[in-house]
Design a protein around this nucleic acid. Structure first.
Lengths: 137, 137
DNA sequence: GGTCGCATTGCGACCCCGTATCATTGGATC
DNA sequence: GATCCAATGATACGGGGTCGCAATGCGACC
């Protein structure tokens, strides 16, 4: 359980209202990636649309990040690192692990440069089975 | 306009029916990525569900590939290379360019290995502005 | 403390994309 | 041809997300 930088909300001119605080608190209580629906169930007093709107907001502020699954579904996750990172997604247990790799980012930037492409953002997801599910010690 | 390897369908035990041929022909006529809806509009005589089913099939056979957009929407595209590749996606004109980079794949595999992760698949998308939209010569 | 203005909320309707159902069709094989 | 089963089309359905709008409440200013 890590604190969430609520200050970033106010700094950008958004109000830190009770519903938003409730969403953020619920967020702080989980380390696992979640769907909006799961989050919404934990917050029966908060309107579904508000949860969607708040997550969208937090996503724009880089407080949460999208985790696209292989089948096209989407989960969200608190971005602990705050840094740009990628995901290892286990198809067996559904766990999501972040990793940071400057070499990978470098390779991506190099490709953009070769194509004379102005890079705004990128993402990379790795799908497979995690060490735990592989019963590795 | 490139021919599509219809043989692959029959080789895997699927029938090459008239609706499937129609979808494949429509596919062969475009080089740009497309949504299912766009494709379906070009094929008014083919049921919507059939278009979905056929694209799903062609995706499994690696004849088309998914192009996930930044906002979560999905387009499909004929995979020309037939090889594993990644995408440069222009947010201005929507163009999608494939590229192949063994070094990038290598970096990805290395990360999986470090995390003792058994890699099934991965994807990487680069978002930004293409050379044409940047008015580069 | 009032009250004013506007961002925010909640509700419900709605939309988009994809899938399930199921009766019907039509290809391949004999 | 006859047969059998995959494939099709129409339609209903479902998940996930957004929209519109009236009501609320936060913050600011008097």
């Amino acid at each position: 359980m890590t604190s969430i930088p609520t200050g970033r909300l106010e700094d950008t001119g958004y109000r830190l209202t009770a519903p938003r605080r409730a969403v953020i608190d619920a967020l702080a209580r989980t380390d696992r990636p979640f769907t909006i629906e799961e989050l919404s169930e934990q917050l029966p007093n908060i309107g579904r649309a508000t949860v969607f709107r708040t997550i969208k907001l937090l996503h724009e502020l880089d407080i949460v990040c999208r985790v696209p699954l292989e089948d096209g579904r989407i989960r969200y996750e608190r971005s602990h690192s705050g840094r740009h990172h990628h995901h290892l997604i286990c198809s067996e247990c559904g766990s999501v692990t972040e990793f940071v790799d400057p070499a990978l980012d470098e390779a991506i930037e190099q490709n953009a440069e070769n194509a004379r492409f102005e890079l705004d953002s990128h993402n990379a997801e790795l799908y497979g089975r995690c060490a735990t599910c592989r019963r590795l010690p």
